[in-house]
Amino acid sequence: MSTHRRHLDRRTAEQMLNGALVTSGDQLNDLLAHAAAPARDGELAGEHAAVMAFRAARLETALVPRQPSMLKALLAKLITAKIAAVAAALAVVAGGVVAAAATGYLPSPLGGDSTVAPVRSSAPTSSTRPSSADAGERDNHDAPGSSGSPSPSPSLTGLCDAYTAGAGSEHGKALDSPAFGALITAAGGKDKVDGYCATLLTHRPGQGGVTVTTAPPPGADEGHGHSGNGSPTSHPSPNTNHPTGPPTTHPSH
């Protein structure tokens, strides 16, 4: 079939394509081998976000049919939260302590037992805690701009604001901006963003459901030092909806 000395006939080509790279030193082989080389730095930068999405998906499955849209929002938020991930991890722990202290779950408020930290800050105790600003973490009634971040998250609300504010100009174009990626994901598609935002903005004050802690409640400082050592990897406990994982995150893009 071929008189060429490389003998790149069908059989040889097929072998190369199958990864049975023939002789080394062959340039085409080398090229293919390089294309399929092992992972390099930077290629796994999205690992944390992917794992968080996996966790969120499992939670969603576990909680069906409860508020799937909220979890979608959470999931989208996870992508955008890369930068704040470390802070968020801290906040979850700290917030957990505050919540636990407030609801009596924590035997020793100042972290005498550091292993107890990151638990029990969700549904069962969500009824009360009228106190002050630092309650943001579990306050479902979102005043935009409060430091706590109830779902579906101020960032999505903000994105919707931004998106809606651009009405009249080209929406389609706006949605191509990476900044709206999370919004599109949360909405389930570009064509659904309009409806999603309409719903979100209409319901802004009253969303209930899964709560997400992303920022340290201002008053939570006391908890930081000790509980920070608790193992965040003990998530998820059955009652815990915190999306935050091991603080080994990749803050870079």
Partner: peptide, 17 residues
């Protein structure tokens, strides 16, 4: 590519089950 890959992994994570 990275953005598209992130989206793909969201999808994968969601539907893996």
């Amino acid at each position: 590519a990275e953005d598209v890959a992130s989206e793909a992994w969201l999808h994968i994570a969601r539907d893996l089950a």
